[in-house]
């Protein structure tokens, strides 16, 4: 894709090749023209004149498009078309069964009054902030720990990363057993060890249930973030650290003045992945908590799912999805902007 773009850009800068009158035919590999046109035309001239004419800007562009066509087709079929259909559905009263009817922006007006959606969004925001901080608080030390080669580094890297390859649904099922009060691990273990007087149901009230989910997500995701951060750490030239050390900077000063600023792009990537993933959270709350206790852990996607497949209002679900999409795009743009060019670094 990039190559094709560069190619067409180069031709756009120099409009002459296709328009220029044919050079007098003196034979193949004519070099006389180099005097007029400089280096850029040498390759062209070495080809026969007719071919030169055929491989004009238009044709080159078509070849470029041909190369990117598979990628474009994938994006169109699996992203653009569904997106347009979602937008189209969101303008309808579209039940799961039966006829649908066009209602304009009514679904969007209904969202404004849908307090349970805004509550779900509020909870999603809270969850995103907490879980992102928690993931970074765990992943950063881990990344620092495994970045330098030492004994057993491979073992540590693998074991920290392992949970990341489990699907969210499977991980949720696993933890839903671990957290079960009667037949699980944590509560019965704490009871048997005499830490609690009776088996404590971790999922019955909001705080323990919420923090159990946070623990599960950190366990599941921190390894992945750790790997991203590690590649960022490794891309920092060691001479810079050495120079700073010679200048007398302590470890904390080095971390703040060298490591952090030079990792800005990596951090941006890890942050955006983490935030986007958390805002779309669904599996763990659906499988482990069913949105409970007492509907206090309903996330935005969970609410969209409920509207679409429990209440069978597909049109309304589509409208909610569009709203969430806009929020997500806006948040990602803000993060990119904040982390792109601060204080003249770069």
């Amino acid at each position: 894709m990039l190559d094709a773009l560069l190619m067409s850009a180069r031709f756009a800068e120099d409009p002459t090749p296709g328009l220029r009158p044919d050079p007098p035919l003196k034979g193949e590999g004519d070099v006389a023209l180099t005097e007029d046109h400089g280096m850029t035309t040498i390759t062209a001239i070495s080809a026969p004149a007719r071919a030169y004419k055929l491989v004009g800007a238009g044709r080159r562009q078509w070849i470029g498009l041909l190369y990117v066509a598979p990628a474009v087709a994938l994006v169109v079929v699996f992203f653009i078309v569904p997106l347009c259909m979602t937008a189209w559905m969101s303008l309808h009263n579209w039940p799961l069964m039966g006829a649908h009817s066009f209602i304009g922006l009514d679904n969007y007006w209904a969202i404004l009054r849908d307090t349970r959606f805004w509550n779900a969004l509020k909870f999603t925001g809270y969850y995103t902030v907490v879980v992102t901080i928690a993931i970074f608080a765990v992943a950063f030390p881990l990344a620092l720990f495994i970045e330098r080669p030492r004994q057993l580094t491979g073992f540590y890297r693998t074991s920290f990363f392992m949970p990341a390859v489990i699907g969210f649904a499977s991980a949720s099922l696993l933890w839903s057993w671990l957290l079960n009060v009667d037949s699980g691990l944590f509560s019965p273990a704490a009871f048997e060890l005499g830490l609690t007087e009776k088996k404590f149901n971790l999922l019955a009230t909001f705080q323990p249930a919420f923090w159990s989910i946070i623990a599960m997500v950190v366990w599941k995701v921190a390894g992945f973030t750790m790997i991203i951060l590690m590649t960022g750490l490794q891309s920092i030239p060691p001479d810079l650290q050495e120079a700073a050390m010679i200048d007398g900077a302590g470890p904390f000063a080095r971390f703040r003045a060298i490591t952090l600023p030079l990792m800005r792009r990596t951090l941006a990537l890890a942050l955006i992945l983490s935030v986007a993933g958390s805002i779309l959270a669904f599996d763990q709350f659906y499988i482990i908590l069913r949105g409970g206790p007492r509907n206090q852990t309903l996330t935005a996607v969970y609410w969209i799912f409920n509207q679409s497949f429990v209440s069978f209002k597909l049109g309304y679900g589509a409208a909610l999805s569009m709203v969430l999409l806009v929020i997500l795009v806006a948040l990602s743009l803000i993060q990119l902007r904040l982390l792109r060019n601060p204080e003249g670094v770069d």
Binding site: A204, R290, G291, G292, P293, R294, N295, L298, Y302, N306, V310, S311, F312
Partner: peptide, 23 residues
């Protein structure tokens, strides 16, 4: 609207049951 009222894990019936028995 049975599904919305009663069967949904997040519907009013289920929420009430849980609250009145344990809350």
């Amino acid at each position: 609207v049975f599904n919305d009222l009663i069967n949904s894990a997040n519907g009013p019936w289920n929420q009430m049951m849980n609250e009145v028995f344990f809350g």
